[in-house]
Design a protein around this nucleic acid. Structure first.
Length: 624
RNA sequence: GCCUCGGUGGCUCAGCCCGGUAGAGCGGCAGCCUUGUAAGCUGUUGGUCGCGGGAUCAAAUCCCGCCCGAGGCUCCA
């Protein structure tokens, strides 16, 4: 028996004509019901009243969850290709209605054996749509205490462990998280799905106040606007990540952001995740906006000549943009967007051996980007989660452990009984934020399916075509999410009594010059030119405000270094430097010493000139 | 979609319970002050109180419907 259960706002139906001899004489030829759960039901060969009983028991349970007491039993043959004989079906359907009534449900039914037309409005919540399949075997087995349906779910069910660098594998619920508080938070988030407080995430007011990004009412939710400072931060991170991937050997490419829905290689992706795309109609063709750079890169590789000598073949794109039409309630600040920027680096490898070697290289690359680039620390900011099929784990224990050893502390390991995605192994670095939510940043996967789907091949030593394995890596995760992590980390620091600050190479203003009065403006501009010439972002607060107010403004903007310039400074070659990182204490430094310090700290990082007017009086205010 | 909270000058919010001429701070603008390390002073501009309807002599305030936003549920290739 198959029951497609739909929680609907209303359904209207009309019985049009009898289709078979056996058709029921209906009480009503048409009707409209509101706030009802519709049970489209197909009775299959072998079903009996016992099956109907089991099906209704499960249905009742689910109705209780939905807090609905009104059902419409709607015979619907199209759910199965293994239908029962009509006479049996009718008998069982009648039984079902009686069972429903005896359970206290307000039960309606549409006539069996009729061609009917109907309109239905379905509620959008996650439990609104559900397909229930009950077979006679399952019903029998359940009597003995085992349910086939539950067994089937078990296959999809995953098992959670903690894997320690010493190789010990402990079920997650038995692990003692004494020194791993944020790993504990990750586990709680992933396994128990528990959520803490109702609160706007701290990075949201920060992203506005610091004039980084903001919501854009004129667009679709989850498509944000980026102010000059935010755009600069994003751009710098993009440049940095791209540079690192190119150093690793990635060939940077650019591919279209939209694809034809009918394209055969792409179709199976969409069938699998049909509801998450932006769709775009243009003339007579339908397109979807890409949700990753896989399509473009795979289509490119499909058309390329690749020899085994060229493997691993690394191909890379800073995906601008990836679009995922997440449900509106799922969107959050910079953490979860509908439009985002994501570095996406694929590697084609000949075999599992090569995959493993490459995987480790990319693991280190990703870790380096988080640690050195974003200045996140695995000690306090992010945790490793590994997801693997049971078979792969059993056969490659040592390899999985080598990742954990590289990470150097216990990790969360999710094990699947069976593979139900395209990959057999995946890891993610998860940032754990102030509301104890975890978000994946860097990730890499071993994909064993897509080279076939996209017909990507290489030619081996014997001149024969082979399908490679494909690794999917985002070494930093979405750039917007990186900014989220930086802001959440800064907020966490401020809760601990530390000053919130951005990494120096990302700070829009690295040095702020504050003249004591307008008299010193010319001298300030000279100083600015001198510092600016050393590839440092510097500006001047030339507004006619009190000194205290200008210093306060600089602190509120998280400016790293503040130089107050007045009579004293002009007479001396040593400047009192207000250093935010050093707790705002004044440090006496020569200009060259300050320049050297900044250059040392930002060495190896990309640099951009300030894109805002250097004089603060010339700047518009975008927020607050 | 459901639940919760919210929508009042550019921004943050008070006022709403208990109906009676729309308020504050910040910002902007004009001026004074010429400043010594997290808010100097004065003046001033700026609002069909999300939209529609209802009851009332009278609605930001009460009632009904709707729209929009955030968070939660769920989801996260």
């Amino acid at each position: 028996m198959r029951i497609l259960q739909l929680h609907s706002n209303f359904i209207e139906y009309e019985a049009v004509e009898k289709e078979i001899e056996l058709a029921e004489e209906p009480e009503k030829l048409q009707d409209r019901l509101e706030e009802v759960v519709v049970l489209f039901t197909a009775i299959e060969d072998g079903d009996d009243t016992n099956v109907a009983m089991k099906a209704m028991e499960a249905t009742k349970k689910s109705l209780d969850q939905l807090k609905v007491n009104r059902v419409l039993v709607y015979p619907y043959a199209h759910l199965s290709s293994n239908l029962a004989k009509p006479s049996d079906a009718l008998k069982i359907l009648k039984g079902m209605r009686e069972i429903a009534k005896s359970m206290g449900l307000e039960t309606y039914s549409t006539p069996f054996g009729w061609c009917k037309k109907f309109s239905i409005s379905i509620k959008g919540h996650p439990l609104a749509e559900h397909l229930r399949i009950v077979t006679s075997e399952a019903a029998k087995e359940e009597e003995e205490g085992v349910c086939e349906a539950i067994k089937a779910e078990e296959k999809l069910k995953s098992f959670w462990y903690i894997l320690k660098p010493d190789g010990e594998l402990i079920p997650a619920n038995e692990f003692r998280f004494k020194d791993c508080k944020s790993l504990e938070k990750l586990c709680r988030y992933e396994i128990k799905k528990s959520r803490a407080v109702q609160q706007v995430p701290p990075h949201v007011p920060l992203m506005k106040r610091l004039e980084i990004a903001d919501y854009e009412a004129g667009s679709d939710p989850g498509n944000l606007r980026w102010y000059p400072k935010g755009r600069m931060i994003k751009s710098l991170i993009e440049q940095y990540v791209t540079g690192k991937v190119i150093d690793y050997g990635g060939m940077e490419v650019e591919t279209p952001i939209m694809y034809d829905i009918e394209h055969p290689a792409i179709a199976h992706y969409l069938q699998r995740f049909p509801a998450r795309q932006y769709l775009l109609c243009s003339d007579k063709r339908d397109f979807f906006l890409r949700f990753s750079a896989c399509f473009g890169q795979f289509l490119m590789v499909h058309d390329a000549q690749v020899s085994y000598r060229q493997l691993p073949l690394r191909i890379y794109e800073m995906t601008k943009y990836a679009f995922r039409r997440e449900k509106s309630g799922e969107l959050t600040g910079l953490r979860r967007l509908r439009c985002f920027t994501m570095p996406d680096c694929h590697a084609l490898v000949a075999d599992l051996d090569q995959a493993k070697k490459e995987f480790l290289v990319r693991f280190k690359l990703s870790m380096g980007i988080l640690e050195n680039g974003l200045e996140l620390s695995k000690e306090s900011d992010y945790e490793l989660a590994i997801r693997v099929t049971k078979d792969f784990y059993e056969e490659n224990k040592e390899f999985v452990l080598s990742l954990v050893k590289l990470f150097g502390k216990p990790v969360l390991l999710e094990m699947w009984e069976e593979r139900f995605f395209y990959f057999v192994l995946k890891w993610e670095f998860n940032f754990v934020d102030n509301l104890n939510k975890a978000s994946a940043l860097s990730t890499d996967q071993i994909d064993i399916e897509n080279s076939r789907h996209y017909d990507m091949t290489y030619v081996d030593e014997n001149g024969e075509k082979q399908f490679p394995l494909v690794l999917h890596c985002s070494p930093s995760g979405a750039i917007e999410r990186d900014v989220y992590a930086l802001l959440e980390k800064a907020h966490r620091d401020s809760l601990k009594g530390k000053v919130p600050i951005l990494p120096l190479w990302l700070a829009p203003t690295q040095v702020r010059i504050v003249p004591v009065s307008e008299k010193y403006l010319d001298d300030c501009e000279k100083l600015m030119k001198q510092i600016e010439g050393c590839s440092i972002r510097v500006d001047i607060d030339d507004r006619p405000l009190s000194l205290g107010k200008k210093v306060r403004a600089a602190e509120k903007e998280w400016v790293n270094y503040v130089l107050v310039i007045g009579e004293k400074e002009l007479d001396s070659d040593v400047l009192p430097v207000r250093d935010r990182k050093a707790g705002k204490k004044s440090r006496n430094m020569k200009v060259q010493e300050l320049v050297d310090e900044i250059q040392a700290e930002t060495a190896g990082k990309p640099f951009m000139s300030l894109t805002l007017p250097k004089l603060l009086s010339r700047r518009p205010q975008f927020a607050f």
